[in-house]
Design a protein around this nucleic acid. Structure first.
Lengths: 341, 341
DNA sequence: TTGAAAGCGCTAACAA
DNA sequence: TTGTTAGCGCTTTCAA
């Protein structure tokens, strides 16, 4: 069964070298002769050597592992993000340990501890729904272990944030709706503790004000942006004494369920009410009418987050980066197109 | 900055015990007095002790880490699976290292090696599109490291497989279509190297034959089941001298893009052509007409895979399990409902 | 019920 | 350019 593992001692013995030399040779230490290095590599391959990461990690107090905390794994957006992270991390020789906060601050705190115990070299985090402070990350910050936020971020001098310009994006969405003739727009969003929602709300508000339209707090609805919440809030909107002529949802899931509910109520979209979303989920291209939404690159965000972290880890540079903003674009589809071109 | 880490030596010293006793106390060794154990625990908490997994792993040659290889991360189904795995693994004190084969056998082989080097305690695998043999897993099998397949599995005496009954499921879908009056059904699927597709094809075929309908190989189309492939194959179907009256797609992505293409061509669904999918992706509830599909529980599959592996690891039992079959159910929606009820 | 001691495999400071 | 040596923190055998 389990034959003995080959260690650098075995290679050293076979080659009449010291383990130290073998260790150096294996990792391209500059002070090793080209040919001995080659001999070491060849012999290692021949003997089927596999480096023991635990020993190495123990010795170097480093794990080559990155911890990831996300609210939920099972959305298209998040899956794309993780996919991007995995790609970059894997190529750079890092492993990912992924955990979900299931939108709960408490679980997030537990995850932080677990990852701390796993001695991850750095952390990639998108915050839970109800997280208010980030003091539970002090464990990491105090030790100087890099922490990078993406998407749902928190301003902190020690941390880099990777985001899109949610303010501008929401501004563009709203502006587009106004251009399409909407004058009374509702906004369905989530807790503004999270930057992504507060910024979108701000963009929404300013776009209205800049167009000399009133900003009516009665038309701003807070929910958890689930499919169910979309239906519920839409029912409340339908019960309003005066219907809005546009609904801007802070994600596509909600927008889709909003459209479905409106259609059931016999409302014509976009003629009576225009609807827009956020995320460019695959759903948006399938719902009828196709959903106008805001695209932002999950995969790239993941890649960038991982790459930024790894750069910090490998070279100790990049510490001055505070915020990285990714591009976004408005995707106009039928659900908001009230003016024939 | 980085204050010294607390080790069992520090606890031992503070308590005037030996490190060995502390080590035992910390892990509920039976030969430790209740009260000393309590003292150890209290002191450990007080001093902020965190166990060093590397040292422990090095010593025990065990990692408390599970390797996962999936074709792709960015689908709703796979995200659910991973989510389930993470939940179970996390609760049991295991970490997950996730890697993607991006549907390539070569990348899969690389991933296997990487995970082997990471000394994972076990492996959870869904095979890549073009994997033909599983000899690249011998590294693991020869050492007796457990390997569990899920969804896209491979028969092997040493491995447990976690699947649904794809044959029966596809049979039910096809039977349903026949009951709805379809007499000439096309099937869009993928490479039958993968059990999920070969079994579905088999179920499709037998359902036809059992209903005394002809099985026409010309009506079976192989593709990679992407959105694009769905559109392309549908175009080919539309060019057929005689149109089918039903199309059974082996996943929902393809079914959705198939429906879109048919609608563009002015075909009425389900009246002229009924369409069915597989997976119960969120898309299926949004496309119009809503898609008849086959539901199977990704989250549960993930949970079960992880739980089965962990049971093997923790107690060395469960070795006799060869196949675990999860339930599935047909979800009938408009896209196949040709008979008014 | 506890302790002493060795060693898991690797790295790095220092020496040669 | 290579070797010697110590030690990372933990577990476990053997002894007490």
């Amino acid at each position: 069964m389990s034959q003995k593992e080959i260690t650098i001692y075995d290679i050293a013995e076979a080659l009449n070298l010291s383990p130290a030399t073998v260790s150096r040779g294996l990792k391209d230490h500059p002070a090793i002769r080209k040919d001995t290095r080659k001999r070491i590599f060849d012999k290692a391959k021949e003997m089927g050597y596999q480096q023991n990461h635990f020993a190495s990690n123990l010795r170097r107090s480093r794990s080559n592992t990155i911890g990831v905390i996300v609210p939920r794994l099972n959305s298209y957006f998040m899956a794309s993000v993780i996919s991007g992270m995995e790609k970059v991390a894997n190529a750079a020789g890092y492993n990912l340990i992924i955990s979900q906060s299931i939108e709960s601050k408490d679980k997030e705190m537990t995850n932080v501890k677990t990852l701390y115990n796993s001695r991850v070299d750095g952390l990639l985090v998108s915050l839970a729904y109800d997280t208010e402070t980030i003091s539970h990350f002090d464990l990491f910050l105090n030790k100087g272990i890099p922490l990078i936020f993406f998407d749902r971020v928190f301003e902190h001098p020690q941390c880099t944030s990777i985001i899109i310009d949610n303010y501008k994006a929401a501004y563009e969405v709203t502006q587009h709706m106004i251009q399409q003739g909407c004058r009374r727009i509702a906004h369905i969003t989530a807790d503004i503790k999270r930057n992504v929602y507060s910024e979108r709300l701000r963009g929404f508000k300013h776009a209205l004000l800049d167009a000399m339209l009133p900003y009516d707090e009665e038309l701003v609805f807070f929910s958890n942006l689930s499919e169910q919440a979309g239906a519920e809030v839409t029912q409340r909107i339908l019960a309003l004494p005066q219907l809005p002529d546009g609904i801007f949802c802070a994600n596509d899931t909600t927008a889709v369920s909003c459209i479905a509910t409106l259609k059931q109520a016999g409302i014509k979209i976009p003629e009576q009410i225009a609807v827009t979303g956020f995320n460019n989920d695959p759903l948006s291209k399938v719902i009828e009418p196709n959903l106008t939404t805001l695209n932002y690159p999950g995969q790239e965000m993941g890649e960038l987050a991982a790459a930024t972290l790894i750069r910090k880890l490998d070279s100790k540079e990049g510490g001055s980066l505070n915020t990285i903003v990714l591009r976004h674009d408005l995707i106009v589809r039928e659900s908001s197109l009230r003016k024939k071109v």
